[in-house]
Amino acid sequence: MAKGIWVFAEQLGGQIKKVSFELLSEGRKAADTLGEELCAVLVGKDVAGLAASLGEYGADKVYVVDNAALENYSTDGYTNVIADLIKQYEPSALLLGCTVTGRDLAAQVAQRMQTGLMTDCIGMEVADGQLVFTRPIYAGKVIVKACVPDARPAMATIRPNTFPVASNAKAAEVVTVDANVGEVRQVVKEVIRVASERPELTEADIIVSGGRGMKGPENFKILEELADVVGAAVGASRAAVDAGWIAQSFQVGQTGKTVSPVLYVACGISGAIQHLAGMSSAKCIVAVNKDEEANIFKVADYGVVGDLFDVVPILKEEVKKVIA
């Protein structure tokens, strides 16, 4: 019998992603309701030491595949290993964070296992003995609830910041597994990491974003300064990206990143439907815009009608004061 709700414990450079803890926290509840065990799958090089931290968020068991060939993520290597584990242990579900890696890996594993995958989900519940996932489609204009009734494992990727992290300490059993990395057909020629002190956009709790109203690349400094006061990431509208003021990887929206932060501060962004598609699941939205008619005010929890060049620098100082 297929058993166990699995969470892919994504790690980068020896650090487990927060989203993995989020999935374990929520997965714990689902596992209890279904009477299944909750397992984390930890893959990488010299990662065994991270296993204990997964128990803290509710994992009963941690499968560890520690192999020098898995130091960096590769589509083939990770797919081979995860598929191998699934064949050995036959879990009933596999959850991954909807991150660059989670998304890439999930599609390959799902096809290899001939199963269904729901991506970019924003909710999970148990109904009729099944995991049911909620996902926004059509740029967030429709919400669909779906499940994988028969195939196993049922797979889903879930947006970071969807579930709160809840500690639930278990002395997780660590199972070291030898899985076959196999042939990796994607040969790495070069890795270019842009050093940044700021959190990754899709995982950040707070995002400060700028649009065409920023007027030029140099002005993004104002946003960065505000961002750094609260440990936020910086984002942008497509207009700002297309103008060449900021790199594509910062774009939020339908053709950019989908984000679910606790707080999203939109500065000089009009709030086009395609932009909202990427950020309307933020818990709190703030808009700073000089046009009181701007669409962004229709979705903002707090709005300031004014010139961002006046408001944002003062906001930075005021935020510093209130969090001090």
């Binding site: 001939q114 269904g116 967030g140 429709v142 609830k145 499940c147 009734p149 195939a151 939205i285 929890d301």
Partner: peptide, 19 residues
């Protein structure tokens, strides 16, 4: 492999306060 159970239109986000 995936079965859609229901479709719904999300509740529109409410405009909040303008300060």
């Amino acid at each position: 492999k995936v079965k859609a159970i229901s479709f719904s239109l999300p509740e529109a986000r409410q405009a909040g306060k303008v300060i």
